[in-house]
Design a protein around this nucleic acid. Structure first.
Lengths: 227, 227
DNA sequence: CCAAAAGTGTTCTGACTACACCCATGC
DNA sequence: GCATGGGTGTAGTCAGAACACTTTTGG
């Protein structure tokens, strides 16, 4: 008797994607400006309804591709939020559509992204540590994504998706510092990255402006590692 | 332009709950026998559709209560699975209903549970390490739950939900050993539990059969700790 | 007096932290 | 020759792992 309850309207199912990148020393989030109610004119995470016959993962990948032109990057399901409508008391009533939102997070190289152009409101990168009030409960979703990213940084290779195939240790360290939002010791950082087997020295070196040549490294694996 | 796609049938949304307990030295999972297609006569996780206006968390708590009579225990969202139909090639076609399943896991004290009675097929506890082939992708869901539980055991108080308010260290250790599926050193275990501040000595002692009196302990907090 | 579980300390190792100087290069 | 970033080693601390014997009690 697996409880066949009175049948009722299925809720809408949306995916939303927290698309993160690191530019210079900053963690950034991709947001779009809403043109429809509810939360019209609020910044929001990119997202949309599941298309027919589409899996959740594919829907998330599609949204990511739509917004950035990027695919084959780190993309992980985060959490499923129960109601699209929450936060922002005034608008909550208008927003009382029934639905659930499956949140994902993605990590992209800033330089590979081509944002959609034209249209009244451009999507844009926002400082992950100084977001405005977003639509729905999107602030909570971003917080959640950042927390998850931080904890995975420690023991996985997630960062592969934020850097080109070869990179210097300083570049990698900058990425870590931007995400963790604090400084790291150069020597300890190198030791750890190498001894955990996350990265390895790649062939060459590269000149970094007016300095001496820097050893290049690469990730041992450039796919999501299951944890 | 948040992509208003061609509108399509919303998928069904179900919650499923991995209800875990520890009996003696064994980790057990609560399963029910399906009486309907697809996967008729297969064992499956308890679950059902979201009722009108219900949040996901409430739906999960309701399923838990229906099956066990238990509430106010550890209950956490696990993962959202994209398709109800998967695994079991032969039946997959018949099972091609479109839907997503939001999985939760719950930890209950075996002694507090009152299983539903009557009805053709009783729900029952199954050895978590020797499950039959379950309906849908439920085997994967259980695996996922056990992995998550194991990792949380290390640094949270999740186990509070598996023991009465007061317990001996041996009892706690048995619970840990059942879940982790390996033995632990008594001295190291005590030291860690106490130094992490997960448990504290409670007032009294208790006689454990034909032995000397054992110190009683309690959890410092008996609510889910956010991580 | 024996069986059963409770209780207790020390040593070793590996990981993480903190910390300061020299080197190669471009300008 | 100097500014810039690249590269390197050591000492201290802490947490986890391994490990064996004594005590209390009931039967």
């Amino acid at each position: 008797m697996p409880a066949t309850r009175t049948i009722n309207k299925p809720p809408l199912v949306a995916v939303v994607v927290v698309i993160l990148t690191v530019v210079d020393d900053d963690l950034r989030v991709l947001l779009i400006k809403r043109s429809a109610q509810p939360f019209r004119d609020y910044w929001a995470l990119p997202g949309g309804l599941l298309a027919d016959g589409e899996t959740l993962d594919r829907a998330a990948a599609r949204k990511l591709l739509d917004e950035t032109g990027v695919q084959d990057v780190y993309l992980e399901q985060l959490y499923t939020f129960g109601e699209l409508s929450r936060a922002d008391g005034k608008r909550a009533a208008a927003a009382a559509k029934r639905g659930i939102a499956v949140a994902y997070f993605a990590l992209v190289q800033h330089r590979q992204v081509r944002l959609r152009e034209g249209g009244e409101w451009q999507p844009g990168w926002h400082d992950g540590y100084a977001l405005p009030a977003l639509a729905f409960d999107n602030n909570a979703v971003v917080d959640y994504a950042v927390r998850r990213l931080r904890s995975k940084l420690d023991y996985t290779n997630v960062a592969y998706s934020l850097l080109p195939r070869q990179f210097t240790l300083s570049e990698l360290q900058q990425v870590y510092e931007a995400i963790l939002d604090h400084e790291l010791d150069k020597r300890n950082f190198r030791r750890r990255m190498l001894s955990l087997g996350i990265i390895k020295a790649a062939g060459g070196t590269r000149m970094e402006g007016a300095h001496r040549p820097a050893q290049l490294y690469s990730f041992v694996k450039r796919e999501p590692v299951v944890v």
